[in-house]
């Protein structure tokens, strides 16, 4: 049989993978190889597959993904630094039928916004929270983040993170998994095709949870910042595997629904 020509393969009916319709035509402003782009498109793909474009509202953070509203074709709110979970809470409370998700980096979610993060999950807000952990402040130029590894060199820990001075990297996802309001807490990555598939499944589950009103769904994506780390994207993936995964292990930390806590409910105070 005659060899197939490329033109015979590249036909609309043979298309098996392409850019989501929910992604806009705006080119992403991220550095080459940045994990943000992968997570963005997974969110877009999930919104497209669940057919919830009109029902979904996103909350953008402050950080590299501050302008992510330019890339996913839904309605958006741009929160102040760290406040995305509070903004998402406010929106979701007055519009309980909408799908509301927040998207934050490690500085936004685990440093300046720790209180908003903890309390949104602790209240069991029926929102999706996506957390990009790349162990650095990317936008401001590679400073130390709450999740920066011990010994990791950043522009504000130029001799490596020293726990005597800087304290320890924060495993906030483990903290959040302990909270009764959490329904689903998982840690994912997007550095290999298999991990991308798993991460998408997790995002899809989180959005589905949101419709079931069973508590907060929280997805950490252990990510790279090759510009901040000053290595190339392929080496960054390798560095992440070798250095971050032992401390930030991938997998589900909680999968169910928020706790009722009925057994701890106190009797009314008698006067």
């Amino acid at each position: 049989m005659a060899e197939l020509q490329l033109a015979d393969i590249i036909k609309p009916e043979n298309k098996v993978y392409g850019k989501s319709k929910i992604m806009t035509d705006t080119p992403l402003h991220y550095c080459y190889g940045c994990s943000h782009g992968v997570v963005h498109k997974l969110i877009a793909e999930v919104i497209e597959e669940l057919d919830i474009q009109e029902e979904t509202v996103g909350v953008a953070p402050v950080g590299c993904s501050v302008m992510m509203y330019n890339y996913i074709d839904i309605d958006w709110m741009e929160a102040a630094h760290g406040r995305a979970p509070a903004v998402a809470t406010g929106y979701k409370r007055v519009n309980p039928k909408k799908y509301v998700f927040s998207y934050q980096g490690d500085g936004d979610l685990a440093a300046i916004g720790t209180a908003e993060t903890m309390h949104a999950v602790n209240r069991g807000e029926n929102i999706v929270m996506i957390f990009i952990n790349n162990a650095t402040y990317g936008m401001t130029g590679g400073q130390m983040a709450p999740t920066t590894m011990v010994g990791q060199v950043t522009s504000t820990s130029p001799y490596g993170r020293n726990v005597d001075i800087n304290g320890y990297p924060l495993r906030i996802t483990e903290l959040l998994a302990m909270l009764p309001g959490a329904a689903y807490v998982t840690r994912q990555s997007v550095h290999t095709p298999a991990n991308v598939r798993k991460c998408k499944k997790a995002i899809r589950k989180a959005f589905e949870n949101s419709a079931k009103n069973i508590g907060t769904s929280f997805i950490e994506v252990v990510s790279t910042c090759n510009s901040g780390w000053k290595i190339d994207p392929v080496a960054a993936n390798q560095w992440m595997e070798e250095n971050m995964f032992p401390f930030y292990p991938l997998g589900d930390l909680k999968d169910g629904e928020r706790d009722s806590f009925e057994q701890f409910s106190v009797q009314k105070l008698k006067k």
């Binding site: 909350v59 709110m77 929160a79 509070a86 903004v87 809470t89 406010g90 007055v94 209180a115 908003e116």
Partner: peptide, 13 residues
């Protein structure tokens, strides 16, 4: 801080 940002969310709606 959270209260005013919750307002931001609700007002956005």
């Amino acid at each position: 801080v959270a209260a005013i940002n919750m307002m931001y969310g609700g007002a956005s709606a």
